[in-house]
Amino acid sequence: MKKLAIFDFDGTLFNSIDDVVICFNRALTDYSLPTLTRDEYIPCLGGNIDEIVSLVLGENSTPENIESVKETYLDYYHSSKKENTLPFPDSKKTLEKLQDKGILLAINSNRLDYSLEYFIGKFFSDIDFVDIEGHSYPHPSKPDPYGVNKIIEKAGVGLDDAVYIGDSSTDIKTAQNSGIDCLMVKWGYGNQDDYENEYPVSILSDFSEILEYFK
């Protein structure tokens, strides 16, 4: 049985896209740039904030626009109530059951560190994560294995003892680059190509299936 479960955040533990859409569209409107629909945002997600902004901007992606929209978006996001960003149903219960089994828990995300700390403190304060790795410059972001390597080192386990649980192609590549197994979930922001990827050891439709993997 695996000893360490490393979770992605957005689309895996938390349903977070609606607040992202609201704040991004406010920022884009400020600069008279085209806004996007929820469905149009989904393929833009997964990378670090600069990569996401570049994809959101599309043909308007220039270094100047990326920096301006990014800073405005982050200001809006930081000051917003983020009322729509909530854990997926059964996510906390699943983490609690894994914790009771003695499974080490961690998070690896391209979300900025302070944002992760805010949501984990608000919703998962009683979960004892061995490590939480967001993206902080100048360190590389996912799918680089930097964050996973730090988690594994801190947990003191081998690569064969760890599994990465995520919802997108970025998570699959992160697991692959780290040399650990991957579980792919279908309740997040992935697509059919992700679910048909040969690397994940299993494609999950419900949180309860994560617990089955750790039996």
Results as ranks from 00 to 15, higher is better:
77 Y>M: 11
87 P>K: 01
81 K>N: 11
83 E>M: 10
100 D>K: 12
91 S>P: 03
92 K>Q: 12
86 L>S: 06
84 N>S: 12
96 E>V: 10
75 D>M: 12
66 I>H: 03
65 N>C: 08
90 D>Y: 13
65 N>P: 06
86 L>G: 07
83 E>T: 04
64 E>W: 08
87 P>D: 04
78 H>M: 14
65 N>G: 06
76 Y>S: 10
77 Y>A: 07
81 K>M: 07
102 G>H: 04
70 K>H: 02
88 F>N: 08
61 S>K: 03
88 F>A: 09
82 K>T: 00
86 L>K: 13
67 E>N: 14
85 T>Y: 01
95 L>D: 07
87 P>T: 10
62 T>F: 09
78 H>R: 15
77 Y>H: 11
97 K>L: 13
95 L>Y: 06
97 K>E: 13
78 H>Q: 14
98 L>T: 04
80 S>H: 12
93 K>S: 15
69 V>S: 00
64 E>H: 11
61 S>T: 00
69 V>T: 04
86 L>H: 05
93 K>Y: 00
86 L>V: 15
70 K>F: 01
101 K>M: 14
81 K>A: 13
77 Y>F: 15
67 E>Y: 13
91 S>R: 02
69 V>D: 00
94 T>A: 08
84 N>A: 11
63 P>D: 10
98 L>R: 01
101 K>V: 06
96 E>L: 14
75 D>K: 13
88 F>Y: 15
89 P>N: 11
95 L>H: 03
68 S>Q: 13
95 L>S: 01
95 L>A: 05
64 E>D: 14
68 S>W: 01
65 N>E: 09
81 K>T: 02
64 E>F: 11
65 N>F: 06
97 K>Y: 06
87 P>R: 05
78 H>K: 15
61 S>Q: 05
85 T>W: 04
75 D>S: 14
68 S>P: 00
82 K>S: 05
102 G>T: 05
73 Y>I: 01
62 T>S: 14
83 E>F: 04
62 T>V: 09
88 F>W: 05
89 P>K: 10
77 Y>D: 01
82 K>P: 01
94 T>Y: 10
101 K>H: 06
76 Y>L: 12
100 D>G: 12
82 K>M: 10
78 H>A: 15
103 I>H: 00
104 L>V: 06
70 K>T: 11
84 N>K: 15
85 T>I: 08
72 T>P: 01
66 I>L: 08
64 E>L: 14
73 Y>V: 00
102 G>A: 05
63 P>Q: 06
99 Q>K: 04
103 I>C: 03
67 E>F: 13
92 K>W: 00
93 K>H: 06
102 G>E: 03
76 Y>I: 10
72 T>L: 12
100 D>F: 03
63 P>C: 09
63 P>L: 05
61 S>W: 02
103 I>Q: 00
96 E>S: 07
88 F>V: 07
66 I>S: 08
89 P>L: 08
104 L>P: 02
67 E>I: 10
100 D>L: 11
79 S>W: 09
84 N>L: 15
92 K>L: 14
90 D>C: 13
74 L>E: 12
79 S>D: 14
104 L>Q: 11
83 E>I: 07
62 T>D: 07
63 P>W: 04
98 L>K: 02
79 S>N: 15
104 L>N: 03
87 P>W: 02
102 G>L: 05
95 L>W: 01
61 S>D: 06
75 D>W: 03
101 K>Y: 07
96 E>H: 01
98 L>S: 03
94 T>C: 11
86 L>W: 00
79 S>Q: 14
74 L>T: 05
77 Y>N: 08
71 E>D: 13
